[in-house]
């Protein structure tokens, strides 16, 4: 396949994944804000903006006052935010159009329809009343694309590049969410046992759609170390770093089989994946959660760049 097509399919799925994760983050923020007083709500919205790396842009426009409608409209549809969700959906579609010959009609239609719906929903400012529906719809669209993909795409290099795009992005997003919230998970004597902890912890899980799974696995008990372990190392949870990396490994392995050779990215990944498998949550907390995440994000970016080089995404 063309290097440019591999790049297109890789970014199509990165943008879809990013849009979905951004929406989940807003959803979690919204839920938190609804149950808090004004000060805490504002803090919560602020952390959404910080996670997305938009603090500077946001404050340039609205100052340091973080209100819900400002935040979610900024994240979802504001033209001054170059990473708004509407634009992500549009970029996803532009990439899909570019690689139209590499995806099935079902996948293309799912992407195209999704973009048409999102565009319509975000054509006017979103109110708190409408927010739930809007977020719900965007999430559902990405589920549909994934479904079309699972059901109709040939399992070949195109599929592998799509999956690699998804999991590089997902690992990055999970890590970033944890990075902003890591302090919530650190042992702080004064909070222990308070209900605030539980709600905040649960909200971290909610940002990655993991609250139900975690409760189910842990009989309802919340504990910060357990949560960190779940999000970082639990290979059963589809948004954990360990899960993303084992998927990256299997998709890169398929590529190596199909191409009959391993590239530099295979070595980088093998090392990173083995490291994740050998790690314990205690070891992570010993070296510092924040430091660990910072390093992980940097390595993940390196891996993505190496894949783009190995497979000639650009000249």
């Amino acid at each position: 396949m063309l290097g440019r097509s591999a790049n297109g399919i890789f970014w199509l799925f990165r943008y879809l994944e990013r849009a979905e994760n951004t929406v989940r983050l807003v959803e979690a923020g919204f839920r938190m804000a609804l149950t808090r007083d004004a000060k805490d709500a504002s803090d919560e919205w602020r952390s959404v903006i910080v996670t997305l790396g938009l603090q500077e842009l946001f404050e340039a426009k609205f100052g340091t006052e973080y209100t819900g409608p400002h935040v979610f409209n900024f994240v979802l549809r504001d033209k001054e935010n170059p990473g708004n969700v509407l634009l992500m959906c549009e970029l996803a579609r532009t990439n899909a159009r570019m690689v139209r010959t590499g995806i099935t009609r079902e996948v293309w239609e799912a992407v195209n329809e999704s973009w048409m719906k999102v565009k319509e929903l975000l054509a006017r400012p979103v109110t708190e009343t409408r927010l739930g529906d809007v977020l719900d719809c965007i999430r559902r669209q990405s589920t549909q694309v994934r479904g079309a993909m699972e059901g109709t795409m040939l399992r070949n290099e195109i599929y592998n590049f799509a999956r690699i795009g998804s999991f590089i992005e997902r690992a990055d997003n999970t890590a970033r969410i944890l990075d902003v919230k890591y302090y919530v998970l650190l042992p702080a004597v004064s909070y222990v046992g308070s209900s605030l902890d539980n709600v905040q912890w649960e909200n971290v899980l909610r940002s990655v759609a993991g609250e139900r799974a975690y409760r189910w696995l842990n009989a309802g008990r919340m504990d910060p170390r357990g949560i960190a372990e779940f999000m970082l190392l639990d290979g059963r949870f589809p948004r954990s770093l360990a899960f993303c990396y084992s998927k990256l490994r299997s998709n890169l392995a398929s590529l190596a089989r199909e191409y009959g050779e391993e590239m530099e990215s295979h070595h980088i990944l093998r090392n990173a994946d083995s490291e994740l498998h050998a790690l314990t949550v205690d070891a992570i907390f010993d070296q510092g959660l924040h430091e660990f995440i910072g390093r992980f994000i940097a390595h993940n970016t390196q891996l993505a760049l190496q894949i783009q080089r190995d497979y000639r995404f650009v000249e």
């Binding site: 396949m1 063309l2 290097g3 440019r4 591999a6 290099e157 590049f161 191409y259 497979y311 000639r312 000249e315």
Partner: peptide, 16 residues
């Protein structure tokens, strides 16, 4: 942008 002259042929840049 996918194409260039390569050994007297027009070639496309593929992942291989």
């Amino acid at each position: 942008s996918d194409l260039r002259v390569e050994n007297g042929r027009i070639a496309m840049r593929t992942t291989r």
